[in-house]
Simulated scan of single mutants.
Amino acid sequence: MKILRIILTTVVVALSSYGLITGKSGIIMPYILLLMGGLLVVMGLAEFRKRKPIAFTSLLAAGFSLFVGIYTL
């Protein structure tokens, strides 16, 4: 889980930086949202294992992010 979180975070930051530098953030925004949704799912599941109440909020945010990412493709 920890390695997957690090990989997803690195890819999201790299794509966001690329979008800011090139000015083409509109083209890659759905992919950033999909990866961010995946990252939130991983973080939510990790928090759910620890029985923290923030897990439900994280999973809801992941669902919303995934929905918007799929809708904008």
Rank of each mutant, 00 (worst) to 15 (best):
G37P: 02
T57P: 00
T9A: 08
V12G: 03
I32E: 02
G23D: 14
K24Y: 15
T9N: 05
I6K: 02
M29R: 07
L34Y: 10
V11E: 11
F67W: 06
F48I: 09
V11F: 06
V12E: 06
L39R: 08
F64Q: 11
L45S: 14
S58P: 03
V41R: 01
S58T: 15
L8C: 03
L60E: 12
P30H: 09
I7W: 05
S65F: 07
F67S: 06
V41P: 06
Y31R: 05
L59H: 03
A46Y: 09
I6H: 12
T72C: 04
L15N: 08
R5Q: 13
P53M: 14
A62G: 10
L34N: 12
V42R: 03
I3T: 14
P30W: 02
A14F: 05
I6V: 10
L59D: 12
G38N: 01
A14D: 15
V42L: 10
L66T: 06
L73P: 01
M1P: 07
S65G: 06
L8M: 05
L15Q: 06
L60N: 02
S17W: 14
L20E: 12
M43E: 14
V13A: 12
S65C: 09
A46S: 15
S17L: 13
S65I: 04
F56G: 08
R51P: 03
M43G: 07
L35V: 02
M29W: 13
V42H: 09
L4E: 14
T72A: 10
L4G: 13
V68K: 05
T10R: 01
L59E: 15
L35P: 01
T72F: 07
T57C: 09
S25P: 01
T10Q: 07
S65Y: 02
I70D: 11
G26P: 06
I32W: 00
L4V: 11
